[in-house]
Each structure stands twice: as C-alpha cells, then as structure tokens.
Simulated scan of single mutants.
Amino acid sequence: MALEVKGLTAGYGPVTVLRGVDFEARAGQVTCLMGRNGAGKTTLLKAIMGLVELAEGSVRLGGVDLQGLPAHRIPCHGLAWVPQGRRLFGPLTVAENLEVGGLTRGNRAEVREHVLTLFPRLRERLAQPAATLSGGEQQMLAIGRALCLEPKVLLLDEPTEGLQPSMIALIRDAVLRLRAEGVAVVLVEQRVEAVLKMADRVAFMAHGRVEEMVEARRLEPGARQFLDYVGV
C-alpha cells in the first residue's frame, strides 16, 4: 500500500510553504526527506496528517482520498506521526502512554506486546512516568505509542535528534524491522550516515518542493545532493 501526494500546495494563512509537492512512500520501504531548514519537510508531514489545510492537491493512501477528512480521523486510515519534541504525556506512565496510543484500535494486547518486543527497554519501565525517561527512551515511547495505532505508514520527524549513538542505533534497528514488516516509513532526517543506513529512497526538498528523488544505494556520503540540499 502506497501513500501518494500529488500537487500538494499548503501553508499557514497567507504564507505558502509547499508548492506543488509530488511524493510517494511505498510499503516496506524507508523514504527519507532531506533539505535545509525551511524547505517544508515538517509542513509536508503535517499536511499529510491533516494538520495544515491544503490549498491544492491530494493525499491518498491505498487509493483512499484523505483530503478534507478531520485530522482526528486520519489515523484510523493507517497513518501515524511522531513529531519533533515527542509530545508525550509526561505525568503518565509508559504503560498509560501506550494505552492512550491504542485507544483508536481498542488497545489490543498483541499490539502492545509487539511494541514491547521492538523496544524491550520500555517493558522495564512500564510503571515509570514518561517525563523521567531519558531522551532516547522517550523517543522509543513516542514511536511505540504511534505503533499502537497499527499504522500502514509511519511518519517520523527527526527521530535521532539529540540522541547518543547507542540510542540512534536502537532507533535505526527498530525502523529497519518495521520496514521488514511491510510498514511504509517516512523519515525526516539530517544525519547523512543515518540516512544511508536506513533509507531506500531519499527525497530532497528545497523551496517547498521535492526537487529530486534518488535511490539511496546510489548515494555516497559526499554526494552532490547532500551538499546542494542539506549543506553538509
């Protein structure tokens, strides 16, 4: 099942951020969005989730048109989003955060077990308030909570930002396992090394458009695209 974005134009009030974006994320693949600050990466994820009103274009998942649906209904169609900053319920325990994430799907025990298998560290901290977790553990919980929706497409916005290498490796392994399970993962990431270890395809964004889509296997750490679009 593919997520298809066609001719998407959107922004905030009079400010247009996205200008005719065409983009596709395929099942069982990791598609990375890269670009300088202000290129429109986060706005694209928000527009897909119905949090930014579309001026033009369409968002479809498996042939179902998501345009115009209330934002709270879009996850029911198989989309989940982990924003920057994680936005956990800090006073709630790990178990309670996962329960909130599973409300839409009825909190099935096997789904929670899958999350805890993916992130064993969370099992050890089920009774611990989310606010007391380390940054890496909070990121695991944010992803785990999103996975309780049983998404077909998972949107991750800078999941490795501010994390130590060992935690980045754990997040990377989880993403690759989700890919193997057939989930379409859309990843906003600025770390070139992380991108090359996870991505199947890289979409380079500039000025509110996807300017270039490249198979990740064709890229090297010093590839021209990284210099042109990311400035590394």
Rank of each mutant, 00 (worst) to 15 (best):
R60E: 10
R60I: 00
R60Q: 09
R60Y: 01
L61I: 02
L61C: 10
L61F: 04
G62A: 05
G62H: 03
G62C: 04
G63L: 02
G63R: 00
G63D: 00
V64D: 14
V64P: 12
V64L: 10
V64S: 14
V64Q: 15
D65E: 08
L66C: 12
L66W: 06
L66S: 11
L66H: 07
Q67K: 14
Q67Y: 08
Q67F: 05
G68L: 00
G68F: 00
G68I: 01
G68C: 06
L69A: 14
L69V: 01
L69I: 07
L69R: 14
P70D: 10
P70Q: 10
A71M: 08
H72A: 12
H72K: 11
H72T: 04
H72V: 05
R73T: 00
R73I: 10
R73A: 08
I74T: 01
I74G: 13
P75R: 15
P75Q: 14
C76G: 15
C76N: 14
C76P: 00
H77L: 13
H77W: 02
H77S: 10
G78P: 12
G78H: 06
G78T: 01
L79K: 06
L79C: 01
L79F: 10
A80W: 01
A80C: 01
A80K: 11
A80L: 04
A80H: 10
W81S: 00
V82R: 12
V82N: 13
V82W: 08
P83W: 14
P83L: 12
P83I: 07
P83M: 08
Q84E: 15
Q84F: 05
Q84T: 05
Q84K: 10
Q84C: 09
Q84G: 12
G85S: 04
G85H: 07
G85F: 09
G85E: 02
R86Q: 14
R86G: 11
R86S: 14
R87V: 09
R87I: 05
R87N: 15
R87P: 15
R87F: 07
R87T: 11
L88N: 11
L88S: 03
L88T: 09
F89P: 09
F89I: 01
F89W: 02
G90P: 03
G90V: 00
G90R: 01
G90Q: 03
P91R: 08
P91V: 03
L92Q: 02
L92I: 09
L92R: 08
T93R: 04
T93M: 05
T93H: 05
A95P: 04
A95G: 05
A95W: 03
A95L: 07
A95F: 01
A95H: 00
E96Y: 04
N97G: 15
N97C: 13
N97F: 11
N97I: 04
N97A: 09
E99V: 02
E99N: 02
E99K: 11
V100I: 13
V100C: 04
